[in-house]
């Protein structure tokens, strides 16, 4: 009985040490040479735990692709219509490209500056409620990031790893969820360049005026 009590912790400890060693071996085997400052932080690897993790919530678009019209409603809000409401009846000008002059009448509010794409590079001419990939595969609107990823592979890769696009919520998903945006939350798909911003906040800490007492 006594021997059993002593043995159990020893076995557990040995198993723990072994697994730590194994994990360290596995992680160090494939590691690239690191500079001194990184090596120090990584010398004490934690064992990846099996605590269940919260999900990452990604704000995906729902509904159908819509376009802003030049109309406003009685509340002053821009009226949007789904692409299909017109284009189910008549074909779009598939020859039109981003670099061309402003689009036709109904799309006049639309800035289209996205490489040398045409509308139907992403929109599906067979069903304007959906999108399509370069090979013609139909995808749903909520899978728009697949479409982006075709050209923007590095960004998509980084997004997948959590390095692009930012997040809110918890860094530690054993404690709570994370919220991520989709590509088109930050980048207008028709003009994806991140917009210019005006800084609203500047330090005023007695900065360049050291003369007046008490200011």
């Amino acid at each position: 009985m006594m021997r059993g009590r002593v043995l159990i912790p020893i076995v557990v400890l040995a198993a723990l040490l072994l697994s730590i060693g194994l994990v360290r071996f596995m992680t160090s085997a494939g590691a690239s040479p690191r500079s001194e400052f990184l090596a120090a932080t990584m010398s004490t690897e934690a064992v990846p735990d099996e605590t269940p993790r919260w999900l990452v919530e990604i704000s995906l678009p729902d509904g159908r692709p819509r376009v802003v019209t030049d109309r406003v409603d009685s509340m002053g809000r821009a009226v949007t219509v789904s692409c299909a409401s017109c284009h189910s009846n008549f074909d779009a000008n598939t020859a039109r490209r981003s670099s061309d002059e402003p689009p036709m009448a109904f799309h006049q509010g639309l800035t289209f500056q996205h490489g040398n794409l045409s509308c139907v590079t992403c929109h599906n001419p067979d069903d304007y409620n959906a999108l399509r990939l370069a090979d013609g595969t139909r995808i749903e609107y909520r899978d728009v990031m697949l479409s982006c990823a075709q050209c923007h592979a590095p960004q998509a890769r980084d997004y997948e790893r959590g390095l692009h696009g930012g997040m809110t919520g918890f860094w530690d998903r054993t404690k709570g969820p994370q919220k991520r945006k989709s590509c088109i939350d930050c980048h207008d798909p028709h003009a994806p360049k991140f917009p210019s911003m005006t800084p609203t906040f500047k330090p005023l800490d007695r900065f360049l005026e050291p003369t007046g007492p008490g200011d």
């Binding site: 934690a46 959590g162 930012g166 997040m167 919520g169 918890f170 860094w171 998903r173 054993t174 991140f194």
Partner: peptide, 20 residues
């Protein structure tokens, strides 16, 4: 377990935080 305030506020997603 939450993200720092500056990270959450960043509109460009330039900030990445976590456990080394």
């Amino acid at each position: 377990g939450r993200q720092p305030a500056c990270l959450e506020a960043c509109p460009t997603g330039a900030r990445i935080f976590g456990n080394l």
